[in-house]
């Protein structure tokens, strides 16, 4: 997940060799994988680079809200599970940076774009994890939403991205389960624990729905992305699916989804639900999320204050290579 489409204006496809373009589109339409050495339209390369690097950044920034609770996890088992999960997320970041690099942008360039504010990451990670239940809510809702988006991406047209998604998806269902299990346990616990669980759901529900991005009529790139098989379902389709799956899960553990308009619609075979606050979404996209500054500060500091480590590693490798050559 984590690849919310944040641009409001559609990009015009630049002039490409019509023959090559036609051949490319035919391959994509036939569900063939495009590989790094294959010809591809510039707009395809650009869109994918943006999407995959955004996804990678989200995995890495997403380690912060959860890392915030590793030292305070309330049992040895929970601590081990959370460490394992966050470790997975770091791994996802690595696969995705590698996939994006095959399109011709280096990891350093991508990281610089993140730190300068040029590149985006999922809006969801700009909300704070203030209580333990937030770790449950993230696993249940955020990883749950991620699965919904990533499962179809296993068949995305770009080979390295699709393959990265296959590896990622294997781990996501464990993430979702452990989160739901935390919530289940809290919801069945003491009154204080139940309060924590409900409060977490109250705060994470709407930001989770925002993760799927703007409504389809506000999502000008969707048609092109679907034609190129970079995207396989629209934002609204995925959001609907998420609500339909998640609402009964909340019911099952006695938690209330904070939406008075949420009800089953027999006719459409899905839930009707209230309007997402898109003003809030765009504010968070602009970097005005509650802990957006903290997130970027933490990332920049980790990068800058440890630059000497990376420099030392390079210097050492060079010395070693020189010695071996001598």
């Amino acid at each position: 997940m984590y690849t919310t489409e944040m641009q409001k204006t559609a990009q015009v496809v630049s002039a490409e060799d019509p023959e090559k373009l036609a051949a490319f589109e035919a391959r994509v339409a036939a569900d063939e994988f495009i590989e790094p050495k294959d010809w591809m339209p510039e707009a395809y390369r650009r869109t994918l680079t943006r999407q995959i690097s955004q996804h990678a950044h989200s995995e890495i920034v997403g380690m912060l809200p959860e890392g915030n609770w590793i030292t305070r996890a309330p049992s040895l088992r929970r601590k081990a599970i959370l460490l394992a999960k966050v470790q997975d997320e770091a791994g996802h970041g690595l696969y995705l940076y590698s996939a994006a690099e095959t399109l011709g942008t280096s990891r350093e360039e991508m990281i610089e774009a993140l730190h300068s504010g040029k590149a985006k990451y999922s809006t969801i990670f700009n909300y704070p994890t203030l209580i333990w239940a937030d770790i449950g809510a993230i696993g249940w809702l955020v990883d749950g939403a991620a699965i919904m988006n990533q499962v179809p991406l296993q068949r995305t047209s770009y080979g390295p991205y699709a393959r990265a998604m296959v590896r990622v998806c294997k781990e996501e269902s464990f993430h979702q389960r452990q989160g739901y299990e935390i919530m289940m346990h809290l919801a069945a616990g003491t009154p204080e624990q139940k309060r924590m669980a409900q409060d977490a759901l109250d705060r994470w529900w709407w930001p989770s729905l925002m993760m799927f991005g703007p409504t389809d009529d506000n999502s000008p790139n969707t048609a092109q992305s679907m034609r190129w098989r970079i995207k396989r379902d629209t934002n609204d389709e995925l959001r609907q699916k998420f609500v339909d799956i998640t609402k009964p899960q909340a019911d099952a553990i006695g938690l209330t989804v904070p939406d008075p308009d949420l009800r089953w619609n027999e006719e459409k075979g899905g839930h009707d639900f209230g309007a997402v606050d898109w003003e809030e979404f765009y504010a968070v996209v602009r970097g005005e999320g509650p802990v957006a500054r903290e997130r970027m500060k933490a990332r920049r500091e980790a990068w800058e204050s440890n630059a000497w480590v990376r420099e030392a590693a390079v210097a050492h490798a060079e010395k070693r290579a020189a010695r071996e050559a001598a």
């Binding site: 890495i60 380690m63 959860e66 890392g67 601590k79 966050v86 970041g93 940076y97 980790a302 990376r310």
Partner: peptide, 17 residues
């Protein structure tokens, strides 16, 4: 565990975790 998310690189973050 205190290092999580603050290591010199993603690879190091992974090995510390």
């Amino acid at each position: 565990g205190e290092w999580c998310g603050h290591a010199p690189s993603v690879e190091v973050d992974l090995s510390l975790a």
